[in-house]
């Protein structure tokens, strides 16, 4: 696989000493959908802004399509697209005019055919004469994406494109990205939602300005080496309480079930069953389910905390 971005010891310390990102190194491959996943303040946006050349690194460097991030910023900018979290459209311009404006900025002369393509692709053709201000949130976001793509960038950076977007528009947006990947583009997306992380070819879990883990979703899930036991019982909350008081399992309580992270079903289920039956709770259903990325992330964070306490 061809490396399209190679990051080496990249570091950003903001004025006042806040660490934006702390010495990260990794590569992103061509035509990959790569995810930056983590909570607010973990360093996702800082990394995107560094790679787009919008802010300067304190230390380290990156190679983007053979260009040096510190020296060839302008060349990099011609080849990338960036959709910021608070994207700006001109609300008093039409959909068509907004795209035209972005074509102008990027010096794209022959934009009309590309514009038609993008409108069709984002299913906005019927709305091309509408003022951008009149569009729904999901449509505005699709228009912003179309604007980002007008100059046919090789790499696009999308900073939390699905935050605050309703589920239908969110699904629609993922479908569009799935089509876009056919154009041999490389897509880098940040998201705070772990349930979206399964959609990436590979992802980096960000926390506290560092990368906790980087791999395919499947490999990250396998790295937990634990079993998740799902239990349906008559009193979920008492079950949660009884297990938390008597064991150290990581437990997630849902509205109608419990997920318990255990070493193995054979070893741990009898323990669980015993505690629950002592508390008069009847297990109605049980099964082993695959670990989720959330299970892994929480496990990593907890292990980290314990390590720190032991130091």
């Amino acid at each position: 696989m061809q490396e399209i971005i190679k990051i080496s010891n990249l570091k950003k310390i903001y004025e006042g000493g806040v660490i934006g990102i702390d010495d990260i190194s990794f590569s992103i491959y061509k035509n990959e959908m790569f995810g930056f996943v983590g909570p607010d303040g973990a360093g996702k946006t800082t990394t995107i802004r560094l790679l787009c050349g919008l802010i300067n690194p304190t230390d380290g460097n990156a190679d983007i399509m053979g260009y040096d991030l510190r020296k060839d910023k302008m060349k990099i900018k011609d080849n990338i697209g960036y959709l910021s979290q608070k994207f700006s459209l001109y609300t008093d311009l039409s959909v068509d005019e907004n795209i035209e404006f972005f074509a102008d900025i990027h010096g794209v002369k022959d934009y009309k055919e590309r514009r038609n393509e993008l409108l069709q692709f984002t299913r906005l053709t019927d709305f091309r004469k509408f003022y951008a201000g009149k569009l729904s949130g999901g449509m505005k976001q699709k228009l912003a994406l179309a604007c980002t793509l007008i100059h046919k960038p090789k790499i696009i950076f999308l900073d939390e494109p699905t935050t605050g977007v309703d589920p239908v528009s969110r699904r629609d947006f993922w479908k569009i990205l799935s089509d876009l990947i056919k154009e041999e583009i490389t897509i880098i997306i940040s998201t705070p939602y772990l349930d979206e992380a399964e959609r990436f070819n590979r992802l980096a879990l960000f926390n506290n300005a560092k990368i906790l883990k980087l791999d395919t979703p499947a490999k990250i899930r396998e790295s937990l080496h634990k079993t998740v036991i799902e239990i349906v019982c008559n009193n979920i909350r008492s079950a949660d309480k009884a297990l938390k008081e008597n064991t150290n399992y990581e437990i997630q309580t849902f509205g109608d079930r419990l997920n318990i992270v255990a070493d193995s079903f054979e070893k741990d289920f009898p323990v669980i069953e015993n505690i629950l039956s002592k508390n008069g709770i009847e297990i109605q259903d049980k099964r082993i389910i695959p670990a989720s990325l959330e299970n892994v992330f929480i496990h990593l964070l907890k292990t980290k905390k314990t390590e720190l306490q032991q130091l």
């Binding site: 909570p39 607010d40 705070p192 772990l194 926390n207 909350r237 949660d240 309580t253 929480i298």
Partner: peptide, 21 residues
């Protein structure tokens, strides 16, 4: 909720579960 790390999200839902119980 929105934008919090998964451990915080769990803490928040633990609090909601406490209130509800």
């Amino acid at each position: 909720t929105g934008g919090v790390d998964p451990i915080e999200r769990r803490n928040f839902w633990d609090l909601i579960n406490t209130l509800s119980s």
